[in-house]
Write a protein that binds this DNA or RNA. Structure first.
Lengths: 185, 185
DNA sequence: TGTCTCATGTAATCCGTTACATGATTGG
DNA sequence: CCAATCATGTAACGGATTACATGAGACA
């Protein structure tokens, strides 16, 4: 049973908000959905061609660029696809894989892994704070802002959970560090 | 630049704890790493053949099954691979994708998405509680248990963050439900 | 003039799952 | 005897990334 791609869903959804070219579509997905979704050109262009053939989008060409807009059938399809339950993707957390085999690591390396995780979570929180602000000042907000903010909030909850975990894990896994001599009286 | 597969890492790591057949390897990864990792047979057998050719594992055959054990070179390779930073995988959260386009959904469908998320998080917490107990009673614990528990804890933090998010999102996104008549005095 | 961004697309390749094929052993 | 589990592997397929090819316009 072929696992259906969710690319169509992302593309139809984006076009349901605003008509775009393939290039702008990629940009929009990267910038706006970036904290929880990703598409590459190699997916987007074939997907657009396919959706057009199915009658879910229509394109109008202006000087060497094609703008795609969603059709009525496309909106119906979008609603249908949004409703059905995605099969859950197999988890693959490379960081936890490393922690799991921590007995084969020096403590330095474990420290590096935890520091890295903390840094990434903090960066994520900064990105999401910026996203919040953009949504507050943006244009599509009447209808969409509340939903977009909900996704931002999900990211924030996850990032804070990571920070909590890092702090907890530093105390449970790292032996209390002896001071290196310099800073104790 | 080919993104290197982390399958080798998972396989070498598992074999560093205990020699196993390919079949047992799959089982161990599913049962023990299941909450943050996954491998299928289609990956494991070719991977084992490859690791053997590189001299990182050795196999001994007994009646129609081959037991693989890690070599000294394999342990060095494992330590090396554990150290280098994994490039972070592109996020793809199908649930958030649906929430993001929530304006195209009926409230019922949104409720279903949130309920589903809550249920999955609770199931995850139950699974992890069982894992905790298994680790407490297991055999490999002197050296490994603390690390394994750290990965379990990461899962718990993440699952609780999801529950928090669901609760928050129910109040921010769902209009206050009028009582259906039955339960108000 | 050269570099950056806009813009479109294809081909090669990799990663991973699923399905298929095979067969022994165990337990009801 | 039949079903389930143990056990090994391969082939087909699908999904996604990366690299490649191309070219116009902006701007420094």
């Amino acid at each position: 049973m072929a696992r259906q791609s969710q690319t169509d869903l992302a593309v139809l959804g984006a076009l349901s908000i605003e008509p775009m070219t393939g290039y702008e579509l990629r940009q929009a997905i990267t910038e706006v959905l970036g904290h929880f979704w990703h598409e590459s050109f190699g997916q987007i262009y074939p997907c657009l061609a396919n959706l057009q053939q199915l009658g879910f989008v229509r394109s109008t060409s202006a000087d060497r660029s094609s703008t795609y807009r969603i059709t009525a059938a496309g909106r119906r399809e979008l609603a249908r696809r949004l409703r059905d339950e995605p099969e859950r993707q197999q988890p693959r957390n490379a960081t936890l894989l490393r922690v799991f085999f921590g007995a084969s690591l020096d403590e330095d390396d474990l420290v590096a892994i935890l520091d890295r995780t903390e840094r990434q979570a903090r960066e994520q929180l900064a990105t999401l704070a910026a996203a919040r602000e953009q949504i507050a000042n943006g244009t599509h907000n009447a209808a969409h802002g509340r939903y977009w903010l909900a996704t931002v909030s999900a990211g924030e909850h996850a990032a804070r959970a990571q920070l909590d975990w890092v702090n907890e894990t530093r105390t449970t896994l790292l032996a209390p560090q002896l001071s290196s001599g310099r800073d104790s009286p």
